[in-house]
């Protein structure tokens, strides 16, 4: 298997072009073209993919598992896996769906491992507690402190409401509401049927409305 992986791994044959020009050219390309460039030996293409996706994946995993630092580790792991297996990627599929599938699986594994490890659970609770008690920082002077406090408080409550959703519902909810994925993409990423996606999304939205309802009125 290692041999098979190596045979398709691109060699380091980067032409000595001006790096800025090279990156600017790569930025113009879509994901599929970047993958093709990388497989053709242009290593900068992978870094462009990483630049393009790291923040999105961080937010997706962070909203799914609720731990920012750990989310960053998992984003790193996602890219390492993509790097290792990019030669196996089916170019007829969407790259974004593939990378989100990897990230989603890592997030699910993380949640599963946490549920088995009480210490991690305790650390997450402690971290949340610390976040709740951090001093307020006013981010925009054009609003009154009261408005800002209320807005910030509401945002935090809404974030908490997402965290309270059951795991399967939360992944679907985040993919739809925060990442703007289509039902078909969510179905591919999570490996469930379209019907299940719809039903989970409907339940997640109901639960979300129930949690945030009292504080929004």
């Amino acid at each position: 298997m290692i041999d098979a992986m190596e045979s398709s791994r691109p060699e380091r044959v980067e032409p000595q072009l001006d790096e800025r020009a090279l990156r600017a050219n790569l930025r113009e390309l879509d994901d599929a073209a970047l993958v093709a460039e990388y497989l053709d030996g242009r290593r900068h293409a992978f870094h462009e993919l990483a630049e393009r996706y790291h923040t999105r994946l961080l937010n997706f995993i962070y909203r799914t598992i609720g731990d920012r630092d750990r989310a960053e580790d998992l984003v790193q792991e996602t890219f390492v896996r993509v790097y290792r297996h990019l030669h196996r990627f089916d170019p007829t599929k969407k790259f974004s769906t593939w990378i989100y599938t990897i990230a989603s699986n890592l997030a699910k594994n993380e949640l599963r491992n946490r549920s088995r490890n009480p210490l991690v659970l305790f650390q997450a609770i402690k971290k949340n507690w610390e976040a709740d008690h951090r001093p307020l920082q006013w981010e925009d002077s054009s609003y009154s402190p009261d408005d800002l406090y209320r807005k910030r408080h509401l945002r935090e409550q809404v974030e908490k409401a997402v965290a309270e959703l059951p795991e399967h519902h939360r992944v679907v909810f985040v993919l739809r509401e925060m990442e703007g994925k289509t039902y078909e993409e969510i179905s591919e990423i999570t490996g469930v049927t379209l019907g299940t996606v719809k039903s989970r999304l409907n339940r997640a939205r109901n639960k979300f409305a129930l949690i945030v309802g009292p504080m929004l009125e």
Partner: peptide, 15 residues
């Protein structure tokens, strides 16, 4: 409620 909640959600600063 759903509308407002989802608006707030989209307002959350990106990590």
């Amino acid at each position: 409620v759903m509308q407002r909640g989802l608006e707030l959600l989209s307002d959350i600063p990106s990590a």
